[in-house]
């Protein structure tokens, strides 16, 4: 039974700046216990596995948010509930003013979806044929559809790609077509589930840039799930980290680095072949002649103090101070539970 009775329908419809509103969303799955063949056939027993545990968040119009977490964290379950595929156990959701499970069809006009591991394109036909079918699915005016398709195909530099049967496309080309298909009807909200999974570095870059560009131009709100922190950094302004069905952190991407990480990577290039720097919280990552890379725990030693000390001992040619890679930050967030 859905436990959202106390929420008046359209609660957030009046608040035009909120695109996605999620409050106390819960979802459990019934999973059959593994038992003997006969018992599981005639008297199966089930156990409830909690996938989402009261998550709440909202997205403003035009915001680009990454939804990241380890496998089984609840990312895909959330995006499926938000796009009307799965029904929750309790909680309240409004997408563009519509409740996904009770107003699925009306809501569908407001959203675009891309599932990286599943295609909406017809395999044996050129992608442009699927675009045409989708234009009917979304009741688009013929003239408007032709103009929009032409604009997107040009913007995505996909003129020759959309003419080829989908089976002949590379994964990156196919993903470009998937995104065009999802943007055809000018959705206000775009859900992307692992859009860069399996892509090479170049294709990932193209897809990230295109999603960002499309969002900038149309003011589309983007909710993106990914294992790849590059998607988060290149596309999104904000990140929600989820683990065990709970939101672990919800921050702007830039604050995730400064607010959470207490470590910096300092790389020094010097005239001397080597220098000795032994102080608390400073560990050597890499050492070679005229080059030293250090991991500095800023809660013990400040970068400023380290550099002063290094300049006293050597003639520095170059200094680089970096944050650890985003993967490390996310891993640390998972390990610590909450920020």
């Amino acid at each position: 039974m859905l436990g959202f009775a106390f929420w008046p329908a359209g609660l957030y419809r009046s608040n035009m700046s909120v695109s996605v509103f999620v409050e106390s969303l819960n979802k459990s799955f019934k999973v059959r216990k593994k038992e003997g063949f006969l018992k599981s056939l005639f008297r199966p027993e089930y156990q409830a596995v909690r996938a989402l545990d009261g998550i709440s968040f909202s997205l403003n119009e035009g915001e680009r948010v990454a939804f990241v977490g380890p496998n089984g964290a609840g990312k895909s379950t959330t995006i499926k509930i938000l796009s009307g595929i799965l029904h929750p156990e309790s909680g309240h959701v409004e997408i563009g003013g519509f409740v996904p499970w009770s107003e699925r069809r009306q809501m569908a006009y407001q959203i675009g979806t891309v599932f990286g591991q599943r295609s909406q394109l017809w395999y044996h036909l050129p992608a442009k044929d699927t675009f045409e079918l989708l234009s009917y699915a979304y009741d688009m005016d013929r003239g408007d559809y032709i103009k929009r398709a032409k604009y997107l195909v040009e913007a995505f530099d996909a003129g020759s790609i959309v003419e080829k049967p989908v089976r002949q496309l590379s994964l990156g080309e196919r993903m470009r077509c998937e995104i065009i298909a999802s943007l055809l009807h000018r959705p206000k909200i775009l859900f992307l589930d692992e859009p860069t999974v399996g892509l090479d570095v170049v294709s990932k870059g193209i897809i990230r840039d295109l999603v960002k560009q499309a969002s900038d131009e149309d003011g589309t709100t983007v909710l993106l799930t990914s294992h790849d922190t590059g998607d988060m950094e290149r596309v999104c302004d904000r990140v929600i980290v989820i683990d065990h069905g709970r939101i672990v952190t919800d921050k702007p991407v830039r604050d995730l680095r400064s607010g959470f990480i207490k470590e910096k990577i300092v790389t020094l290039a010097m005239k001397e072949s080597s220098i000795e720097l032994s102080m608390g919280g400073v560990n050597i990552v890499e050492k070679s002649p005229h080059h030293l890379q250090l991991l500095v725990d800023t809660s013990q030693t400040s970068v400023e103090f380290l550099l002063q000390h290094a300049m006293q001992k050597s003639s520095l040619i170059d200094i680089t101070v970096e944050d650890p890679p985003m993967e490390e930050i996310i891993k640390a967030i998972y390990a610590n539970g909450a920020v």
């Binding site: 799955f29 996938a51 379950t77 029904h87």
Partner: peptide, 14 residues
């Protein structure tokens, strides 16, 4: 389809 939308057919997914 309602059973499909409950997600229980597949057990836990992502």
């Amino acid at each position: 389809l309602k059973h499909y939308e409950s997600g229980n057919r597949f057990g836990v997914r992502g």
